[in-house]
């Protein structure tokens, strides 16, 4: 695996020895792994997923009134929208369940987001 010293930028085509013993050029001991195809455009941090927007999406479903559901036995809300901009999150339910169940307002209308759709979105 090619590595580049982050101190002096010297590239070592293999790099296994240098990363263990330090850079022979400058003595620095931090190295960056370089992708063989292209190291250049992979350097910046990028959004890890393309997720996001799910609450807004569920709220729009709710506003349309079309797909509001009532809870079945055993269903647990993942996110409760108490009021606009105010959310209560059931971390355990999000960790354990695949589906996301949103409850909105006092009236307790529910919208269910199915896991397949969410995974697709989140994985881009």
């Amino acid at each position: 695996m090619p590595h580049q010293c982050t101190g002096c930028d010297t590239v070592y085509p293999n790099g296994t020895e240098e990363i263990l013993s330090g850079c022979p050029e400058c003595g620095w001991n931090r190295f960056r792994y370089i992708l063989e195809e292209d190291g250049s455009d992979k350097e910046a941090a990028e959004p890890a997923g393309d997720g996001g927007g799910i609450i807004g999406e569920l709220e729009r479903v709710h506003e349309s009134g079309a797909e509001a559901l009532t809870l079945r036995d055993g269903d647990i809300e993942s996110v409760r929208v108490l009021d606009e901009g105010s959310y209560e999150i059931n971390v355990a339910s999000l960790l354990e369940k695949e589906e996301i169940i949103l409850s909105i307002g006092e009236a307790g209308r529910y919208v269910v987001h199915l896991p397949s759709a969410f995974r697709e979105k989140a994985d881009g």
């Binding site: 997923g49 997720g51 996001g52 993942s78 996110v79 901009g85 105010s86 999150i89 960790l95 996301i100």
Partner: peptide
């Protein structure tokens, strides 16, 4: 401002979901 704060709250809530979703990876 209210508007900005509400957007931030919504995005933060979506962020929690995204964070938890990423545990799988």
């Amino acid at each position: 401002k209210d508007e900005e704060a509400k957007d931030r709250a919504k995005e933060a809530t979506e962020g929690v979901i995204e964070a938890i979703n990423w545990i799988n990876d």
